[in-house]
Design a protein around this nucleic acid. Structure first.
Lengths: 152, 152
DNA sequence: TTACATGCAAATGATTTGCAGGGAC
DNA sequence: GTCCCTGCAAATCATTTGCATGTAA
């Protein structure tokens, strides 16, 4: 799915749900989908401002919450109180490793883990709607630089 | 490990790390360990106030952060911006299912999942310090009441 | 004695909301 | 023409911090 198609999908969803499709929302969604990275609300505001400095922070938050509810975007707690969002539409589900030193995010996926989650849920009569698996620690790069320091 | 022993362990840790062991900290830790549930900072403050209304919110937060750093307590983002803590000392590691309807928390544990997490981390040169696995959805009770409603 | 801890109130930072004017449908 | 959306500023909410005073070691 290319970006224009995606944008169309989102626009359709907004209208179907009774939301209006405004230039601000188009601009914010375009900015959110521009790259597949993990952005904060503030970064999204900044990116939107590159296109039009009049877009307000409030509208960014309001749009993000509609996008999240619709599953176009997924929010991750960063652990330090903030949140980052990622563009999900058209991307395969995956989990995250978060570096506690440099905040780098590594994505991974393991079907066996997903399967065992389902099994655990079944055992408890629980119906999974979504899940979040995060590994916190040191990424390759940060481990390497620690070892260097320790080594000398 | 009974509660007095636990308290002693925590007190020892505080002193070893150069923190002072004060009546407030003892009171707060006792309140945190009183039950194995998932409490907010605010609830802990309330519980502490039952013993001594002069304990301040700031001291609760300051004590929680030492407890968390030491691994006596573990913080979980609730998804709505807040956090809950749970007493970890003397309890086996486990993950959580969170009911999005009634907020009930079900604990579960799967060694195979842990193993696969380690494997994934190894593959990416990542060193896990801690992890968080949360399944969000409907608990048994809430599923049952939805079905009842749909059924009639 | 001397840092560190405490309580208080003010500061912070992310997110939300009330409101009056503007614009999608 | 409605009613939702927007920008702005003020309001929240959880958490943190500065400071003068208290106190564990």
């Amino acid at each position: 799915m290319d970006h224009d198609q995606e944008l169309q999908t989102v626009a359709d969803h907004f209208r179907q749900e009774g939301y209006r499709w405004t230039p601000q929302r188009a601009l914010i969604v375009r900015a959110a989908f521009a790259t597949h990275d993990h952005f904060t609300a503030d970064e999204l505001l900044a990116r939107s401002h590159e296109q039009d400095p009049r877009v307000s922070r409030a509208t960014v938050y309001r749009t993000l919450s509609v996008l999240e509810a619709a599953g176009f975007v997924e929010g991750l707690d960063t652990g330090d109180g903030g949140r980052r969002f990622e563009h999900v539409l058209g991307h395969q589900h995956h989990d995250h490793m978060v570096c506690t030193t440099c905040a780098a995010i590594v994505e991974f996926h393991d079907p066996l883990i997903e399967e065992r989650q389902e099994a655990a849920a079944r055992q408890h009569g629980f119906l999974i709607e979504r899940h979040s698996l995060r590994l916190y620690g040191q990424c390759k790069r940060c481990r390497a630089s620690v070892q260097k320091r320790v080594g000398r």
